[in-house]
Nucleic acid binder design. Structure first.
Lengths: 234, 234
DNA sequence: GCGCAAAATTGCGTGCACGCAATTTTCCTG
DNA sequence: CAGGAAAATTGCGTGCACGCAATTTTGCGC
């Protein structure tokens, strides 16, 4: 299985605080990135996901195949990125937008739930396409990890640099909870829509809407947020 | 990038509760798996990690190259598996062994810390080998996710099936926290050993031993465990 | 505009991951 | 022990990921 949606090495890099040096260069790269995303999704929808080769996507975007892999490190990433696009930024911004008096746990949960339930028709159609192909579904689930860095930043701001790893651990936990919720939801829509919870192998597998899944997965983390928050502002 | 260390699809499968059907077949498979692990590590240490091809490992273990990929889905997995081996089982067992009166959060933390600080010489030597190669380091960090399933089981037992996803979210959060701790630790040993915390890009990067890193990363999750535990046994 | 240094793109070569279908091995049953 | 089905192994073919080094493009100071 292909792991990861992030091209960079996983070792923590705080990243530049100020805007990167060459603003114009950067915009061009983003344009290329978007062109690749769009081309990938369009071709995947039109011809079916596994009929699209990297070569095709690159050509449609006007770059060499090798350049494709400078932007996306797997064939599936570009397709997934077309759907997830600015998810990370949006969720982080939504959290930051909440007034400081609401519980951080609630702010995060609401931001996440709102994002995932507000997905338009285009995404929903594409999702059905993805869930049928194992590699695509894996890449889609792996993409949840991308919310970690921006979420870390916004949490760290709210917490005022509590413990060393605190913000990052909370952000990463949210990401992994979202992943679990999505897995549960996909499994439901995949199987027959049996309502109600049922037992399987000694574990409770929850049923319900995506919103239910997200709430169920995120709620166990709320106490961690509460304590971290209280720790900074008694 | 290659994702995941787990061969199985990421969608949740409760798995069989009873022992799998063919006990003898299974043991043979484990033998082959171990042979591949050992061969991989031995060759990697002897000739250097990137001088070892999958073909070599397979040959040393007496199977075809194609069979290698039936057991491990990347070249690096076998090498990493030789070190991490029964980590998942050991940690879960250590948690289960603690008396029910100790805080679950403490039980988990202690089990994890003890495991990672008790690694023998063999592992430490191999670790230095791995951290220098990006692909290997990534695979090593990805392997932390493997503790999720057994940890989920043991947590679920202690919690008595609290919420639907609760046990799994907690287990996955622990896994991701361990990953973060390891990343921080690797970054430290990689760079010059500057002591004390320092600021980089507005985030606090912690310094200290592996044990310190683990405690720092796991402590934010403790309240989540406490509440989940209290929720079942008031 | 000119030139130059940094950065992005590209081609090439290599090993790898994996679907598929054929083959061999294992283990159960009568 | 023979038959036969399930499971594991294997070979093959294909596309892919990525290191490396050469080349082209970009942005900036003059």
């Amino acid at each position: 299985m292909h792991a990861i949606l992030r091209a960079r090495s996983p070792v923590w890099d705080p990243g530049p605080v100020t805007t990167p040096p060459h603003g114009l260069r950067e915009r061009k790269k983003q344009a290329t990135r978007e062109a690749l995303r769009e081309a990938a999704l369009r071709l995947a929808v039109e011809y079916g996901p596994d009929q699209v080769r990297v070569e095709d996507i690159a050509e449609a975007a006007g770059v060499s195949p090798r350049t494709y892999n400078n932007y996306f490190s797997s064939r599936e990433q570009a397709i997934v990125a077309a759907i997830t696009a600015d998810r990370e930024t949006r969720i982080a911004a939504a959290v930051a937008a909440r007034p400081a008096r609401v519980r951080l746990a609630d702010a995060v949960t609401e931001a996440v739930v709102k994002h995932y339930t507000n997905t338009g028709e285009r995404e929903h159609e594409a999702l059905l396409l993805m869930t049928t192909r194992t590699a695509l579904r894996d890449a889609f689930l792996d993409a949840t990890a991308d919310i970690e860095p921006p979420l870390t930043a916004v949490i760290a701001e709210r917490l005022g640099d509590a413990g060393p790893h605190t913000a990052r651990v909370l952000a990463a936990s949210v990401a992994v909870a979202v992943r679990i919720a999505l897995e549960g939801w996909l499994q439901l829509t995949g199987n027959a829509g049996a309502a109600g919870n049922f037992r399987a192998g000694g574990l409770v597998v929850p049923s319900g809407s995506l919103s239910d899944q997200l709430h169920a997965a995120l709620s166990p983390l709320a106490p961690a947020f509460d304590v971290a928050e209280r720790h900074t502002q008694p």
